[in-house]
Amino acid sequence: MITNVTEKSTENVCNISYLSEIVGGKKAMIKGILDAFLIQVANDLPAINDAIVKTDYGAIKKIAHAMKSSVSIMGMSVIKPVLEEMETLGASATNVERIKVLNQDLQLIVSRAIIEIEKEKLHYV
């Protein structure tokens, strides 16, 4: 594990307060953005897995890079160093073994985030 997040830890990985502040607490807007995030990560996670299987460093770099701005909006600061390292390794086309380790953290944290956001969305119906 690169981060302190484990399957058993109870601390939230998302912090929606930043997003809420940006959009002035408007519930419909927040819900729309949360929905977009869920759709986006549902595509990004398999895509990055696929890129790692194929050792496609260019794709790893692009996906990690694109995910960075989405996760920062969701207040997922814990995942930022993981994505930054994946992007850097992807750019230098080295160390796929390290990328695989980082990817385990990424998958775990984003899975946790999805559960948190699904719960959070109930407040914005």
Partner: peptide, 15 residues
């Protein structure tokens, strides 16, 4: 091309 960023930026500007 990042939907989350684009939607957030739109909401932020409108707000």
């Amino acid at each position: 091309d990042n939907d989350v960023f684009a939607l957030t930026l739109k909401a932020d500007i409108e707000n």
